[in-house]
Design a protein around this nucleic acid. Sequence first.
DNA 1: GGGACTACTTACATAAAGGAAAGCGGTTAC
DNA 2: GTAACCGCTTTCCTTTATGTAAGTAGTCCC
Lengths: 125, 125
Amino acid sequence: MTTTINEPLPDKEACTSSLKNALDALSVINGRWKLALILCLMQSPKRFSEIQHEMRDISSRILAKELKDLELNDFIKRHVYPTTPVTIIYEATGYSWSLKSLIGELSAWGGQHREKVKQSIRQQS
Amino acid sequence: MTTTINEPLPDKEACTSSLKNALDALSVINGRWKLALILCLMQSPKRFSEIQHEMRDISSRILAKELKDLELNDFIKRHVYPTTPVTIIYEATGYSWSLKSLIGELSAWGGQHREKVKQSIRQQS
DNA sequence: GGGACTACTTACATAAAGGAAAGCGGTTAC
DNA sequence: GTAACCGCTTTCCTTTATGTAAGTAGTCCC
């Protein structure tokens, strides 16, 4: 029998705080649309209706809500130009770019995972 | 007026597939418990009730479901030892370790984001 | 045989996320 | 004036995630 009760496991605390940070990060980029919207606006600033057109099946309700969230988290900026009628442009901020390596890791891991799943399906058949 | 309609934006496709991969990765590690469980079992193999004790407020229903999910995705392995009564041990597989750099990135970004949020709260007051 | 422990499962409830459809206040085009 | 476009908001509904409580089949202890 192994008792782990009084052993101060090497990196248990580090692990806990790292987990907390990771979950925080996840909560910020989580959901069906956030990353897509950030990447979309990183390619170029756009208007509400342009974004809605590019993301084919996002509803205006969700789009408005997500844009608000992203603005609150400082990923995008909402510019209002006093033309008639007013033109509203959403633009990715520099903070969006801080996600670059994280998105890179997510995409790399996701890519290899997809391959792995494909192979295990092949082996089953 | 800028027309972006016929311009084949440099990396739009790369971006789309990278997004797809990233969303896949997110869907696999998503939820309140998955990362915590993986890290918990990476520290040492454990039994059902030990895990439940360590993650204080996970219900047995959710724990059972999450363990099944993680086993399906090959992150953990369920060992059954024919003692009386049977002993069941859950253990992180090598595949869990493939998440290492991803978790590192998540945690790093999450950490700096928390700092940033703290500062912007300070500036508001 | 009554209580307790193990590894769950089942049934039911709540909450959060996401979506569909309509509306709204303003402007422009005809 | 009426139709259409813009940037939303409101209402209602469905889906998914998570939680609570109880039960179950097996074993052990006394």
